[in-house]
Simulated scan of single mutants.
Amino acid sequence: MLLYRIAYKAFSRKLFAPGFSGRWNSDGKKVIYTAESIPLAFLESMLRRQGSGFNRDFNTMIIDAPDTLLTTIVDVHGLPDGWRNTHDYRICQRIGDDWYESYASPILKVPSAVLPDAFNYVLNTSHPDFSSIKLLRVTPLIPDERIEDLLKK
């Protein structure tokens, strides 16, 4: 399965997890957020950046996760109200932290809070099977300049 990540150029040459908290993990859990498509990865990145950093500062990472790897799936219909909250990630962090600590699988498939019918994939870098996930290539991020104009506003 191919996965995609938009990352600062300085951090795009290897699979790196700084351990910062995010929607599906609390601080100290070393995970990598990826998306099912380049457009979704870009949209997630744009919203997270909210005007900081411009497109020339980023690359697209193309990652291969073997289809044989176990994937834990979070069903959007089973999530409680408030899971998409942009200011409080505790609901999702509990789910992600339980998955991370259980070592149930190296991949957690989650609905995108931006577009719940699309999916992001969280990679547990501490899982023993993580070593089979490989960075295939890195390409420059070159979206339409009008999108960058939106970020500058």
Rank of each mutant, 00 (worst) to 15 (best):
K14E: 15
V122I: 15
K109V: 02
Y103T: 01
Y33S: 10
H77L: 10
V110M: 03
S12D: 07
F20D: 13
L79Y: 11
L123C: 03
E145Y: 10
F42Y: 15
E148G: 08
G96F: 04
T139S: 10
Q50L: 12
A104S: 15
G22M: 03
G96Q: 04
F42N: 05
I147E: 04
D149F: 05
R137I: 06
F119Y: 15
T139R: 11
D81W: 05
G96K: 01
D97G: 03
L108H: 06
R23Q: 08
Y121E: 11
P66A: 07
M1N: 08
Y4S: 02
A113V: 04
R49D: 00
R146I: 04
S112I: 00
V114R: 01
V114G: 00
G78F: 08
I142P: 00
P128E: 12
T139V: 14
L150P: 01
R23V: 06
E101W: 03
T86F: 00
W83Y: 07
H87V: 01
G53E: 09
A118Q: 15
S21V: 00
T139H: 02
S126P: 00
L47Y: 04
Y103S: 04
D88M: 00
G51F: 13
I133C: 08
D149H: 09
K153G: 11
S12A: 15
I6Q: 07
T125I: 06
D27G: 01
E36M: 01
A41T: 02
G82A: 06
A104P: 00
V74Y: 09
N55V: 12
W99Y: 10
